[in-house]
Amino acid sequence: MVVHSFYVINRSGGLIFSDEHFIPKIELEKTFSYPLDFVLKQGQKGVNVEFGQRDGIKVGHTILSINGVPVQGNFIDFSAPSTTANDDDQQISTSTSHDIISYLSDSTNYPVTIKFGRTRLNSNEKLILASMFHSMYAIACQLSPELNSSGIRELETDQFKLYCFQSITGIKFVALTDTRQANVDALLKRTYELYSDYALKNPFYSIDQPIWCPLFRQTVQQAMDLLEKTGSPYT
């Protein structure tokens, strides 16, 4: 039972806090001979598998490294390896770097070892998804067959569940957990308390702005740990 991540969304749909508690690493390394069975496509975060699932490599996975050298966006540079890969890496193209797709379509480069995996959300994507959820929350009320419906409280997929708690002041607390995690509502209530205690009471915090209060982050992480271990977010 795991809590994957936790987000706070303000009244206008902006993401003001996010914490990734446990995100499983999905990576697969395999050696391929020419030609490659996949259809690859350049995306925003690198080269994605567009078509041709096999051996656990799924559509949507991104190429993370080739022959042990990490890629940089849509390019790979074998001569200057291991520049620190950061979260929101920009795509640098220098004179020694190769375009990944053209590199992989050249049969002289084979056999080649490619590592595929799911990339994590970068901060920009998180912002987009937060405001997307904000509007989905509103649409769920509009499409209700019953009077006075709230927005989405619990969204279920086969792999994870999303729980949302909206305070009367309009701030949304969102938690992503696996499907078996119980008592997440208590966690969200608890984080609301923590928000009131450590963010709102902080004289340097202004409302609806991103939360940078270290105590808030710390106590939220504690609450998530407690929920996973004891089934309750309270000590």
Partner: peptide, 18 residues
């Protein structure tokens, strides 16, 4: 958003009354 690879994807959502 999914931290893992999805199979069926979206299944259902709940509000306070439906």
């Amino acid at each position: 958003l999914s931290p893992q690879d999805l199979k069926d994807g979206f299944v259902s959502f709940k509000t306070n009354c439906y």
